[in-house]
């Protein structure tokens, strides 16, 4: 084990200004190809939930949050293999975007984190801070020594991601029942 401290003392560390932290893992296109390697194309479809459907989700204990969802349908020829839905959730200091792959029978196939952003201060609540990351998951190939920094801290709970995944599974099931998804 070799550990080289960055600062001289723990007190110096506390006095140093905090910086933001960001990692891009995968673009949505890369994630959907990983989840459905047999797909030869993906169709994008918009789903709009009406008030009754949002209430139905509420009754399942799932906050609908958004009425509009974009679903990517994985296809091989005419056959539907499953769907991929991307979403982003906000924690105390972090913004996490992720994608869920769902099989034709409604089972979760895979969950991949697309990007992770950690703010300092209260920026995370500012729409402008969040907007700057929209569509920024390019996932350039990393090289050793580029930016491989890792965060250590009191364990980050991924409750928001777990809730988000439940919501997406419920939305997809609802859309399949009413025929707006194959």
């Amino acid at each position: 084990m070799r550990l080289v401290l960055a600062g001289t003392t723990v007190a110096a560390l506390a006095a140093a200004p905090a910086s933001a932290f960001a990692v891009d893992y995968l673009s949505l296109e890369e994630a959907q190809r990983l989840m459905f390697p047999d797909a030869d194309h993906f169709d994008s479809r918009e789903i709009a939930l009406d008030a009754t459907q949002l209430q139905a989700l509420d009754a399942q204990g799932i906050r609908g949050r958004s009425a509009r969802w974009t679903v990517r349908i994985a296809r091989h020829g005419d056959a539907t293999l499953g769907v991929v839905v991307a979403d982003a959730v906000i924690g105390k200091f972090e913004l996490i975007s992720y994608a869920v792959g769902i099989d034709g029978d409604g089972a979760i196939r895979q969950i991949e984190i697309l990007s992770y952003r950690e703010s300092h201060g209260g920026e995370i609540r500012l729409p402008a801070w969040r907007r700057q990351f929209v569509g920024k998951t390019q996932a350039a190939p990393l090289r050793v020594g580029d930016d491989i920094a890792n965060i250590s801290g009191a364990t980050l709970s991924c409750t928001h991601v777990t809730e988000g995944v439940r919501r997406i599974v419920a939305v997809v099931a609802l859309a399949r029942r009413n025929g707006s998804l194959p």
């Binding site: 550990l3 600062g7 905090a18 910086s19 933001a20 201060g121 965060i151 250590s152 801290g153």
Partner: peptide, 16 residues
Amino acid sequence: PIELRDEASGGVRRFA
């Protein structure tokens, strides 16, 4: 490189 999260106000500091 290890960054330590500031648990009070967010953000990270390079630790080691």
